[in-house]
């Protein structure tokens, strides 16, 4: 049976993993290669590396880092952050990344999704969507949540899937960092309008939150950062908890 996935997310800055709260108070959390290995040994099903480096040297350091991670990692990993062209994708895949996650660049130029899907296959395009509820609807945000757009969440999810995205990684900005659970109502709505897998992100605080997002939110995978980094929840314990509650999990 296909299992539900647990995906730790690591933020990368200048080749190191950083920990912080909502991109502030960044602290060095060590070598991403070592951390990635540790998570995979603890049972993570996949990893997401999000590059938040802002310098011009970004591309070169990221490619070298991706290569080091790929050499040492025997589970799939996705790289995201600032990807805006086929060339960016080629370099990352050529260095061993399995998928790329694209966000703002795809909103600005939706054909990018199609170009990547046609060149490298749908399976390597993860469409990351950051959104926030306003009145009765959800709207898409850009640039790490700083810029609001008039685009509706469900419209964008449907369009992204049509253009060839292989998965959707949905982050609710209203839930991110709150540890009050995932945005299950919106997640469920996304799952009902697209037929590609949906990854829940933003709001993980307890093991029950994961159970709820797989059941109520119909998520195929759930992503979290701080609860794993700060060892508030151990991946092995989480997997046992979910397994005992009859969620299909890889043990």
């Amino acid at each position: 049976m296909l299992t539900k996935r647990i995906i730790p997310c690591l933020d990368i800055k200048d080749g190191r993993t950083v920990k912080g709260t909502q991109f502030e108070n960044l602290r060095d959390a060590g070598d991403p290669v070592e951390l990635g290995k540790r998570y995979s040994e603890e049972g993570a099903d996949e990893l997401v590396f999000l590059d938040i480096t802002a310098t011009n040297e970004r591309r070169k350091t990221l490619a070298a880092l991706v290569r080091r991670i790929a050499r040492n990692l025997n589970i799939p990993f996705t790289v995201g952050g600032g990807i805006s062209s086929l060339e960016d994708v080629f370099v990352l895949l050529d260095n061993g990344a399995d998928k790329v996650s694209i966000n703002s660049a795809a909103v600005k130029r939706p054909e990018l999704i199609q170009e990547i899907a046609q060149t490298f296959g749908n399976q390597c395009v993860v469409l990351a969507i950051d959104a926030k509820p306003i009145a009765d609807d959800w709207f898409v945000y850009l640039n790490g949540g700083r810029v609001q757009t008039p685009i509706r969440l469900l419209d964008w999810a449907v369009q992204g899937a049509k253009l060839g995205a292989g998965e959707i990684l949905f982050t609710s900005m209203a839930h991110d960092g709150t540890k009050q659970g995932f945005a299950n109502t919106a997640l469920r709505q996304i799952s009902e309008v697209v037929s590609i897998p949906v990854i829940a992100s933003g709001g993980a605080g307890t093991m029950q939150d994961f159970y709820d997002t797989y059941t109520i939110g119909k998520a195929d995978a759930a992503l979290a950062a701080s609860i794993f980094h700060f060892k508030e929840i151990e991946i092995a314990d989480l997997k046992r908890f979910l397994h005992n509650k009859k969620i299909p999990i890889r043990l």
Binding site: M1, L2, N122, Q123, G166, I196, D220
Partner: peptide, 30 residues
């Protein structure tokens, strides 16, 4: 859901070579 993405089990259908003795093991599909 299509694509089929994630870890799924493979069950042995015919078991002549040891390579196919994969019962209950999880593999990554996409």
């Amino acid at each position: 859901k299509v694509p089929h993405v994630g870890w799924n089990t493979a069950a042995t259908a015919t078991s002549n070579a040891p390579i196919w003795h994969a019962d209950l093991k999880y593999y990554y599909f996409v």
